[in-house]
Structure formats: C-alpha cells, structure tokens
Design a protein around this nucleic acid. Sequence first.
DNA 1: TGCAGTAATTGAAACGTTATAAATCAACGC
DNA 2: GCGTTGATTTATAACGTTTCAATTACTGCA
Lengths: 336, 336
Amino acid sequence: MSDDIQGEKPTLRTLSQETGFAVATVSRALAGDLRIAARTRETVAEAAARLGYVPDRAARRLRTGRTQVISLLLNTQHEFLGFTHEFLSGITEVLAGTGYSVTVVPDSPIEDRLAPVRTILRNNLADGILFTRTEAFDPRVRLLLEADFPFVSHGRTEFTTPHPWVDFDNESFARQAVAHLVAKGRRHVSLLLPGDQFTFTQHLRYGFLSAVREAGIAHDIVPGVTLDSPPPEIAAALMRARHGATPPDGYVCVGEVTALAALAALSDSGAVHGVDADIVAKRASPIFDNIRPRIDTVFEDLRATGRAMAEMLLRRMGGEPPHGLNRLFLPSPPSR
Amino acid sequence: MSDDIQGEKPTLRTLSQETGFAVATVSRALAGDLRIAARTRETVAEAAARLGYVPDRAARRLRTGRTQVISLLLNTQHEFLGFTHEFLSGITEVLAGTGYSVTVVPDSPIEDRLAPVRTILRNNLADGILFTRTEAFDPRVRLLLEADFPFVSHGRTEFTTPHPWVDFDNESFARQAVAHLVAKGRRHVSLLLPGDQFTFTQHLRYGFLSAVREAGIAHDIVPGVTLDSPPPEIAAALMRARHGATPPDGYVCVGEVTALAALAALSDSGAVHGVDADIVAKRASPIFDNIRPRIDTVFEDLRATGRAMAEMLLRRMGGEPPHGLNRLFLPSPPSR
DNA sequence: TGCAGTAATTGAAACGTTATAAATCAACGC
DNA sequence: GCGTTGATTTATAACGTTTCAATTACTGCA
C-alpha cells in the first residue's frame, strides 16, 4: 500500500486535493487539533495513511524551529570496551519510531568541550543533547542550563541547580569491590582512577577510601596515570607497583582495559591470579566470560543507560521540569 | 568576534541590510558565483564573517532538497569489540568541518534490512548512506543502485554494476593466517566463519581452503555456529571440537570474541597455547596487547576504514562516477 | 425573521534559502 | 545619438509546513 510509487512524494497539498479540504485544515487535522471536526480528522488520517504521507522534516523545521534531532557528544579518544556500541544501541532503540534522529558529534576531552555545544546552540542543530564523561563543574552543563536547553548528562555534577542525569553508582561499586576483596582475605588493594576532573572519579575515590579505612587495610591509588593514559603507560605503572616493596594483593578495576592490564601485570611478574592477588572489575561487555583466569566482575548495563538517557531527554523536551529526572543504576554484587 | 550576541541570529536578510546588496546577490556571492563582481564577493564574505553568519540548514534543505546528512546503518546486535567506536570515530573525523552530520540508524540483520533504506529514500532523510556487513547480493545495494543514490558499502558484493566500497582483504588474511600456523608446524587448523550471506565469509572461506589445500594439512570449519552466535554456543562448539577424536592444533579467528573463546576452550580443555595449539586472530582494538598468553594478531584499522568510507562518500556525492571508488585494505603479517 | 454565538474551515503570511528570469547600467561600434 | 552587448544586480517565486486572523456555515433564541 505505502509502496505505491505515486510519482511525486505526497505533501499536504496532495492530501488537500485528495480530500477537498484546505491545506491548513489538513495540517491541523493531522496535528489532532480538536477544533477540527472528528469526521474530517478521520478522512484526512485515512488519506494520509493511504498515500503514505510523511511530513517533510525540512519544512517543519524551518517553520517551527524544532529540528527533530538529538545530538550525542561522543568521545572519540579512549573508550571502555564496547561502551559506544551498547550505549548508542540503547539510544537508537528508544528513538526508533519517535521521529527523532540521533547525530553523532565528536567530543574530545582534550580540546574545547564547549565548542560543539556552542555550535549546536548557535546554529540550532538539535532539540536536545546527550553527553558522557561529565565533570564536577562541567562547563557544558553550565552553558546548557543558562540557555535552558534540554540535555541529559551521563554522570552527575556538583552544581546546585538540578538537571537531568543518568549515572551508575560508582561509589557503591568501589565499596563493594573492596569488601569483596577483603572477604577473600586481601590486605592491600589498588585502584586505578580516571582523570580527576570527572565527577565519577570522586565517587570512586570516596567509595574506595572509606571502604579501605573501614576495613583497616592497606591501599594505594596508582600514581601518574589515569584510565585514559596510553595502555603501555598503564601497563608500565602496574608493573612498577608489582616490583615495589609491597605489591598489592587486590585490584579494583573500573574498566575492561584496566582489568586486562592488571591481569597481564600479574602474569608478567610471575604472580598467580586467585593465589597472589584477586581482581574485581567493572565491565560493560560480555568478553570477560571468555577471559582466563576468570575474574569477578560487576556489569554496568550501558544499553539500559542509553535507553534511560534517551527516554529522559524525550520527557525533558516534552516540557517536564528537570527536577526528579534522575536515574541511578545500582551495581549488583561482584560475580564471575 | 563571532561570540557577539547580536540579539537575532543573522540571516541573508541581515547581510543584505548590512552590505546594501539584495538578498539574492548576497546568496550568490557566498556561493562563489563568478558572475558576481569580485569586489562584491569580498564585501559580503567580510560581513558574513563579522556577523558569524551560518546558513540555516532547514531553509537550505527545503529549497535544494539536499539534507547535508549522512546516514550510517549500524548493526545493533553483535559487534566485533570496539568496531563501532573506531568506525564511527573515523567517519566523524572526516565529516567534521564539511557541514555534513552523521545520523545513526539501527540495522538489524535479522529484520528487514531494506526498511531503513526505504525510509531514508522515501522521506529524503539523507544525501548518502554508509553501511556494513555487506551481503554478496545485498538487497540494499540493489535498491540504492536502482535509485542512483550515493552510498559506500563496507564490503564488496557480487553485482556486476560497479559501486563504491571499502573492504579488508579477508582472503589474504585467511591465507596468511594459515601459512603462519603452518610455519609453526601446525597440521590441523580450524576456522569459525560469519554467516554465509556475507560476502567476506566467502572470501575468508576461499582464502582458508586454498591455503590449507596448498599446504596439504587437515582443516575444519566449525559447524553449527557463526560469529554472530551467542558466545556460550560458540564456546560449546569449540569445546566439542577439543574433545573430539582429532582436535585442531591451530585456530584462525576472525574477531576478538572468537579468539578469546578459542583461548578459553584451550585453557578449559587443559591444552596450552603455544604448545598444543596456536591462534592467529584479526583484531580491531588494542586489547590483545594485554591478553595472556599473547597471541598473534592482524590489525584491521577500522578508524581508517571509517575515514576512507566517509571520504569516498563525499566524492561520490560530489558527482564522481562510482567506477574506481574502491579501496582494499591489505593485512599486515600476523605479529604479537 | 433576524441576530448573536459557536463550530468549522480557510486564505494568507511567514520561516530562510536558492534558481529563474528580468532589470539596470556602462561601454561600445556604427 | 542609438541600438547592442556584456557585466552585474535584483525582484520574484518556490520549497512544505504551521499559525494567525478572517470567513463561512450552522445553531438556537428572541
């Protein structure tokens, strides 16, 4: 039915001619305007369905100023394994059928993180923005709040003004990870953190530190490198620690890459996982099922995260106030 | 300078008032029309720069029918580890600054692969299309060729009509992988293939089979599962083979996931990598650097692939004929 | 019968751009 | 001096939609 090649793509004018109503009437009928007779609305809807009418995005956008586009600021440097794929899949799942499309805009934490946001605002390139790797006083959040522009951040901030966010409870993760290692008898746990600017770094640090203090065990935070450092540097830092006076016997790893680096460091220094040390890692992909030796992991469901962020943004763009538009994913206990 | 909040966003009318030229003149001057006096073009360009004028996408799109959008059909099911991230980064790198934006459209090989393409064509949602996981007689290619719509496929087809593609030489990869295993003294190599519908499956098969025949060694192609099978099923299939009468002593793995599954199968069956068997794997991410035991890999640069595809699509959209718009990435020899 | 009041519909304008066709103007040859 | 040419510029229409203000049709009531 909708496969008819009617020659020309149907517009409101086509529907107008087809039904005998004026273009304005057709437009309002399709919009569900109640001041248009119910009978008319039916007739128009039927014709639209029959001819496969789809409103022209450019025309609507020009007239209304709304773009029907959501922009995702995507980090093009480093990634947790599988992060992008899962996250993006969740977003597109939710947006399919809503009429919104997602555009991907590169976001490099090294360069000016505001530039892409400014471009979007200034040139009206989207109706809403999603982004990740949120900082405690993220300039993007500040700018978007000022402009009263809909957005959802992956991660919280420390601004007092409420805004929509979706986050994973990294503080609990760190706490549970330490507890898990302590339960295995470990007495010196090590943590490799992301860059200090990110909010979740503070959450991880706080959860980690309070848990190690509570348990009264030794700890260290790997110095000189972050999760975003080049893998060889991470590997080198971990090896240095293993050859130090008091190598750790437990590792809390925030991503797959770090976990593999820690495993490699153990292996390369002649230590045996499960004997000399244990690892607890956060993971976003299923690959750890095939890693040997098996390690204990906590799964962060990034597909669900993407879904939650997209749903929240839709609500925000629909006019819901930001207050209460938050979602904190809780970690399940480490398991293998 | 371009940060002035001039109250209103500048349009051609603003520039017209500013320069004293008519809107039409300004438009053509900015377009670089040579029939506009050089002096005028300068004046207009200066004013545009000074006011930070950016053409309105919706208006331009409505008028010209060109969307300035490129759609990427993205598989939301399975992925090679890191595929999406690298690939997408390459694409956005090239497109940054061209005025084109990328929208991501979900493509599920299980459902109708033509549906998203039809929607894009019918509703004029993009000026060009990129997609992956190309089939030998891919219906999307057929449709896009018929519609004379610009696209670049990741992977070749067997259609006689030429069309732009970017591919990795999987035949050579398979051949080299086998040769590498043979050089290590392996006499029975095993291969796990993607689904039969994909063109690159045939390339892999051909390269693999001709290499094993040439070398005169035993071989098998893991039956009952494909690269897209659920990881537990893959693991089970590999374990079955290990417990069979003649377990393989060499593995050719087309992706990270399979390689890890093969390593796990070796480990779980008590075999030792490097002694009882060797693995050669294709990889798209840096994670294997940290896998122990180390395995030999061939790197497929998906960022470069994304870049190549985006560049090619720009050229195609610019009017270049499809003939000659092809790029075959060659594998470097396996190394660790 | 006339008229206010409501319900339903409609014409026209506008969003910002580009393409077409027409207008303006100076210089030129005769 | 006058039509012709070539170089620039411009008015106008159109892309498809939404919305304002205005029109038309209908109802009930005095």
